Amino acid sequence: MEPKTYSTIELRKRMGEILDRTRIAGEPAAITRKGKTLAYLVPAEWFEQYVAQGRAAAVGDPRAPVWGGLVGFGRAAAGAGGPGGTADPTPSRCQRRKNL
């Protein structure tokens, strides 16, 4: 199923409707800003299945990044730190402010 695309402005104006379409009708949504996809909104069941499949795939693979209960998802896949991941060498904004 091809996700329907919404800009961040549309999302702000029609949040309830978009959430209902995703939850009730099972329609995924792509959220964009300036023409670039920022995120996908999917039904909770889809995401829960994704997480369960990722955990099952990671069992027995010590190299699989696991962080915050999500396997290979978002920043954890890029090595954001936490158990099983590697720390990001780039300091955060808060860390940079502390160094000033």
Rank of each mutant, 00 (worst) to 15 (best):
A30Q: 10
A30V: 00
R96S: 02
G85S: 15
R97K: 13
G68D: 08
V42L: 05
I18T: 06
G68T: 06
G54W: 00
I18E: 11
L41S: 04
S92K: 08
G79N: 07
K34T: 12
Q49G: 00
R93A: 11
L11Y: 06
L41E: 06
E48V: 00
T22V: 15
A25S: 14
E48S: 10
L38F: 03
G68V: 04
G82W: 01
R63Y: 07
R14K: 12
R63H: 06
P65S: 08
P65R: 04
P43G: 07
L11S: 04
V66E: 00
Y40M: 15
G84H: 00
A44S: 10
L38S: 01
G81V: 10
G84S: 05
P3H: 06
T22Y: 02
A78L: 14
R12P: 04
A44E: 14
A29R: 12
D20S: 13
E27W: 01
K36A: 13
Y6V: 12
P89T: 03
R96V: 08
A58H: 03
R96I: 09
G35M: 09
Q53C: 06
F47D: 05
N99G: 10
K13L: 12
G26V: 09
A77N: 10
Q53R: 12
G68S: 05
A78M: 14
T37I: 13
D61H: 03
V42E: 04
L70F: 10
I9P: 00
A25F: 13
E27I: 12
G81R: 08
G35S: 07
E10I: 08
G81D: 08
K34V: 07
D61T: 06
Q95A: 14
Y6R: 14
T5I: 14
G85P: 02
A78S: 10
A87F: 01
L70P: 00
G26H: 09
P28C: 06
L70G: 00
R14Q: 14
L11N: 05
I9V: 12
G68P: 05
A56Q: 11
I31P: 02
I9A: 14
L19F: 14
E45R: 15
W67R: 14
A30T: 02
T5H: 08
A30S: 13
P43Y: 02
D20E: 13
A52T: 07
G35Y: 11
P91Y: 02
A52V: 00
A56R: 12
Y50R: 09
P89E: 11
W67K: 10
R33V: 07
Q95P: 02
E27F: 02
D20N: 14
R96E: 11
L100K: 13
T8L: 15
V51P: 02
G60I: 08
E17Q: 10
D20T: 10
Q53W: 04
A39K: 00
Y6S: 04
I18P: 06
F47Y: 13
Y50H: 07
A25Y: 11
R75G: 10
K4S: 15
A87G: 05
